[in-house]
Computed example of a mutant assay.
Amino acid sequence: MQYFVWNVNPVAISMGPLHVFWYGILFATAILVGLEYMKWVFRQESKDESVIEPLFIYTVIGIVVGARLGHCFFYEPEFYLAHPMKIFAVWEGGLASHGGGLGVIIALWYGSKKYKINFLWLIDRLVIPTALFGFFVRMGNFMNSEIVGTPTDVSWAVVFSRVDMLPRHPAQLYEAFSYLIIFFILAAIYRAKKTSLKPGLLFGLFLTLVFSARFLIEFVKTKQAAYTADMALSAGQMLSIPFLLVGICFIIWSFKK
C-alpha cells in the first residue's frame, strides 16, 4: 500500500484488568507540563506560588467537567438527554475542547476572585501552556485513531486501519502541530514583552489563532455530530466562531486599552 498505515494499540501498558492508554499518558503529561510552566511564570514575575496548586485543581476540574459536558451536549445531545447517567461515564471517552475551554475560563474566573489574582493577568499567561496542552491531546487522539480526517489521495494520507482501510487526512496531526506552533508564538511574545504586555492580548491571540486553525482544519475532518451531517459547517466550526470573535474583540480592546 502506498500510504502510511497506522495501527498502533491505544493501550500503552496492560497489567491484568488495568489498562493505561496513550491518551491518558499524554493528557497527564500536558497537565503536568502546564503546571511546571505556570510555576516558572510565577517565579519570573515574583508572584505568590502558594496559589498555584489550588488554581491547578480548579483548572483540572474545569477542563474535565467542561470538556465532558461539552461533548455530551454539543455533539450527542439526543443520546445523553435520553441516558443522563451516561454523562458520568468519562472512562467511555468523549471530551470536547470547546467545552473544556469554557470550563477552564469559568473555573479560573472563580479561582482568581477567591485568591485575589487579576483574571486577565492569569489567563494571558495560562493560554501559553494551554496551546501546548492542545498539542498533547491531539497526539493522544492520533494514538487512539480517533477524530480522523476525510478520505483523500494526498501523498501524506494515513490509513487508520482500526477505523477502515481508506487513506485519510491526518487531521489530528494538522491540529497538533498547529497548536505547537501557536505555543511557540505565544511563548516568544511573552518572553519578549512580559513587562509591557497589554492586558488581554495573549488571550485574544490564543483564541483567534487556535480557533482559526480549528475552523479551517474542520473542513478535512469527519463530522462528529450526527445532526450536522447535512449542514455546510460542522459542530466544531459553529462552536469555533464565537471563540474566534471574542478573540478578535480582545485583541482590539487590548490595543485600545
Rank of each mutant, 00 (worst) to 15 (best):
M1K: 15
Q2A: 15
V20K: 12
Y23N: 05
I25A: 06
A28H: 04
A30V: 05
G34L: 09
W40N: 14
I52R: 05
E53C: 13
P54F: 05
L55N: 01
F56S: 14
C72L: 08
F73Q: 00
P77T: 06
A82G: 14
P84Q: 11
A96Q: 10
I105V: 14
K113N: 13
K114T: 02
K114H: 10
L120E: 04
W121F: 06
L132T: 01
V137R: 03
M139P: 07
G140S: 11
G140C: 09
S145P: 10
I147R: 02
V148C: 05
T150K: 13
D153K: 13
S155E: 14
W156D: 06
V159K: 03
V159P: 00
S161L: 11
R162M: 13
M165A: 13
R168T: 02
L173M: 09
E175I: 05
I181M: 12
A188M: 12
I189G: 02
Y190F: 09
K193R: 15
K194S: 11
S196W: 10
S212I: 11
A213T: 10
T228K: 07
L233D: 01
Q237R: 01
M238R: 08
L239D: 03
L239I: 03
L244C: 00
L244W: 10
L245E: 01
C249I: 15
F250V: 01
I251K: 05
W253R: 15
